[in-house]
Amino acid sequence: MDGFAHQIIAGIATGGIYASVALALVMIYQATHHVNFAQGEMATLSTFIAWSMVEAGFPYWIAFAATVMLSFLIGVLVERLLMRPVQNAPVLTHVGVFIGLLLIVGNMTGWIFGYTTKVYPSPFTSSGPLMGGLISAHELGSTAVTLVVLTLVFLFFRYTSLGLAMRAAAYNPRSARLVGIRVGWMLALGWGLAAAIGAVAGMMVAPVVFLDPSMMTGILLYAFAGALIGGIDNPLGAVIGGFAVGVLENLAGAYVVGTELKLTVALAIIIGVLVVRPSGLLGRVVTSRV
């Protein structure tokens, strides 16, 4: 029974990471109706930037903050340089640009930082076992960070005028433009925010899985699954979905299919959700006029 409880709690901890990445995906989806295949690679690059700052002797939280800001800028730049010129192109072009971005960012990371796995420090340490040894300090800390990020995002969208403008730009670009919102910049901001959230997720997961250029590929998949379970247009749903996938993955890995098929669990979730209930559990059912 203790083992079972530990699996669930470990699942919640990894689920927090999935929830952050899922949130980043949903943010971009809401703003642009795109799913960014390169989200994982961008987060990995951010984590490597943070790693090199920590290695260079910066205190952890300074490196953390600098990385988040830098990632935000990278996200904005990507939208301005790559996505804006093709915003009216067919879906195939968008998918192609995402794949191109994935290739460039992923391989550049390997090129610059090398392919050997690196140890990334965790800011959370404890002197004794927590909750009777059920949870590690890092699991507790990263879950807390995830929840803080989610709360901040929620507050930003709910209570600031910039957040309102971004929601307006996503919901109805034409009307938003008519009332003076710069829709193009709102999209870029959305990309920046998503990149920043992805960076946080990367820095939280790196101490667990070790840092290497392909660290996020699997995580991206779980995040997709989480976002889809919750409904790809619903941030809260994505968060809940992310946690659910974390627990599900851990339980399935421990008791049903073994660790070798964990990714296949994500695949099964994705296909299952898309076929049975494409709008997710909490998403809006979209009916379109043809």
């Binding site: 109706h33 795109h34 799913v35 295949f37 879906v91 968008h94 998918v95 590929t217 699997g218 998949l221 997709f224 699954a225 070798e260 098929l261 964990k262 990714l263 296949t264 994500a266 695949l267 994705i270 296909i271 898309l274 076929v275 494409p278």
Partner: peptide, 22 residues
């Protein structure tokens, strides 16, 4: 058939990631 454009890309993408494991 049920998955338009982007969703199909996403699903097949995850299939491609899962293949070596399977």
């Amino acid at each position: 058939l049920r998955l338009g454009g982007l969703y199909l890309a996403l699903t097949t993408f995850s299939l491609a990631v899962a293949v070596p494991q399977i």
